[in-house]
Design a protein around this nucleic acid. Structure first.
Lengths: 215, 215
DNA sequence: ACAAAAGTGTTAGTGTTACACCCATGA
DNA sequence: TCATGGGTGTAACACTAACACTTTTGT
């Protein structure tokens, strides 16, 4: 629009909430930086001729080495006092990754359970809260949860993902009927022996990387 | 965060998609400005110490004189080439207003039907499309449509709002059952004579201004 | 009396929920 | 043989969708 230029333009950056599921809990990637020593979301400035989505993907790649994850714009945070040092506007994104895709220690990153976070930098706790809400809402009307799954997985593992995000137990038979009705997973034919009990059938996504709106 | 400062910070502004319903159609407010003479969304720069929500509300008030409308952040548009003149990032909002609240001609503003728009400035057509999608989606799981209603309205008028946004006819009896079940409208007791037929009962919102998530 | 929109119930079908036992394996 | 998680069907219930006629008014 060519808005009338302001004296001092605010700094514009992006912060990314990267979720994964590990050991039966939803975890988020945080980095330690800044003088205050608080944990913060991976983030960075938006390049001069850089698309917002691309900036978020780059920030993510720089801190995790992972590309091609499901990545979605979440919300733009711009309260004047959110960063005491300067006027900073953050276009926040959130991303989902199967735990297996996160290579060895991404260096500065630490995974923490979202339900036991310490004090975080700035308004990053609020950003994570909003991302969780969005994620939980999307479970109901999209296939977003499949983005947490590795290349082969059992239906019990998939069910666990739903249970962890929704925070409630689900009925096994009803859940399996639901998944079959979606028609987005196919049996690989292989099974996995996991302990002293019957082995589980393995499945894979019919359309990996695709998130569809359902119902 | 304190992202490393970039040489030239992008201009940050807000554009607002203001919807109303009039004459059986969804309309959007556009303003004529800029050298190219194209219609554009009401928009403006974000003040130096101004909250994003407040900036959107101010922009809206400046161009329509209306305050206190339902206003929600939509999406942030920042493709590097979206404005050929400069790097401009727009934090877009959308707002809903009953037609009655839009006083006399807001000056520079023009109301146009969303399904017959001319060529618009920049990516404003895409912004409007996204706002329509969000609005349509929210019909299903919130009481957002009530924000289009004047202080007293008939159930047929409310039904028309749903039909216009969804683009399909609804069954009168099922719709009324749906509204009664929500329990968010109350009969005023008054009726309105509108033509050579039976007068309609008038209703008002139980919680005006409140948008709730349903189901 | 007629035209026009307001107002009102019932039924079939579909989807959702609740629920319990056998299976295959390792120790 | 026992412990463990994997795998399977059915019945009640709730919700959704389809459908037609009477009422009240103005002309």
């Amino acid at each position: 629009m060519a808005w009338p230029a302001t004296a001092a333009a605010p700094a514009v950056g992006t912060d990314v909430v990267l979720f994964t599921i590990r050991d039966g809990a939803l975890e988020v990637l945080l980095t330690r930086r800044g003088a205050d020593g608080l944990l913060a979301l991976p983030g960075g400035a938006i390049g001069n001729a850089e698309d917002l989505d691309r900036a978020a993907e780059r920030v993510l790649a720089e801190q995790t080495g992972v590309r091609g994850l499901y990545l979605e714009q979440l919300y733009t945070f711009g309260a004047p006092e959110r960063d005491p040092r300067e006027r900073a506007i953050s276009v926040a994104y959130y991303a989902l990754a199967p735990h297996e895709r996160l290579g060895v220690a991404p260096g500065a990153g630490e995974w923490l359970r979202v339900d036991a976070l310490p004090k975080l930098a700035l308004d990053h706790a609020a950003i994570i809260t909003r991302a969780r809400e969005r994620l939980a809402a999307k479970l109901d009307y999209s296939t977003i949860a499949f983005q947490f799954m590795p290349s082969a997985f059992t239906l019990s593992e998939l069910q666990a993902v739903y249970e962890i995000i929704r925070g409630e137990q689900l009925d096994k038979r009803n859940f399996r009927r639901f998944v079959q009705a979606l028609g987005r997973v196919v049996a690989t034919g292989a099974t996995r022996r996991n302990g002293s009990h019957r082995p589980a059938r393995l499945y894979r996504l019919k359309y990996p990387g695709r998130v569809e709106i359902i119902r």
